[in-house]
Amino acid sequence: MHHHEDAGIAAKILHGDLELYAGLMNKYQQTIFALVAKRVPENEVLPLVHETFVQAYRSLAGYSGKVPFGNWAARIAIRTCCAYWRREYRHKKRSAGWPADEERRQWLEQLPDLNVNHSADCLTNRQDAVMLAEWLLGQLSPENRTLIESVYFDDLPLKEVAAALGWSLVKTKVRALRARQKMRELLKSIGESL
């Protein structure tokens, strides 16, 4: 079981062999970078991954080895990203409405013509799809944003997300449901504004 190996390495690191930590980072960097890159702007990815691994080191005494180090560090990464959005929301005003310029309006009007089962790869304007997703997330609270990203787009189990956010499973389920409802309402409001 490779996480026993991780636990052994963690114990050695705690005994002062800090160089071994670079090995752990190498092993799980892909997981953490992918997770963080999905959640924050590109220029913030490296600083947040950096912070994640520093925090993981500082909490290393709490790593029991029951799960792979990467999964454990992923929880810290989720919390780090959530804290990033909390800071961002404090300093920046969220966009009030869907920026519907003429081009985007036409794009939205064309949507009914597309087949529901249409492959995502065939979408004509990927940039708009990303923008729509970003706008929707921007309307949620930092915690709900983290929750939605984790549950619906990373396909992480609810139990895992609840542990990462320090919530109960029931609270996580309820908040996920409400956040999803809010996003649905927002999508409806875009449709109605056409």
């Binding site: 800090l18 080191y57 529901v116 995502a120 990927r126 799809a129």
Partner: peptide, 30 residues
């Protein structure tokens, strides 16, 4: 239409650009 918008939004999440870490970033962390 709503389902379509939802699927587009989901697609938006899934097409976020990947990130290639610069060499030696671990040394900075250490």
């Amino acid at each position: 239409q709503l389902k379509k918008l939802e699927s587009v939004a989901r697609h938006g999440f899934l097409t976020q650009a990947g990130f290639i870490p610069p060499a030696g970033w671990q040394d900075e962390v250490i």
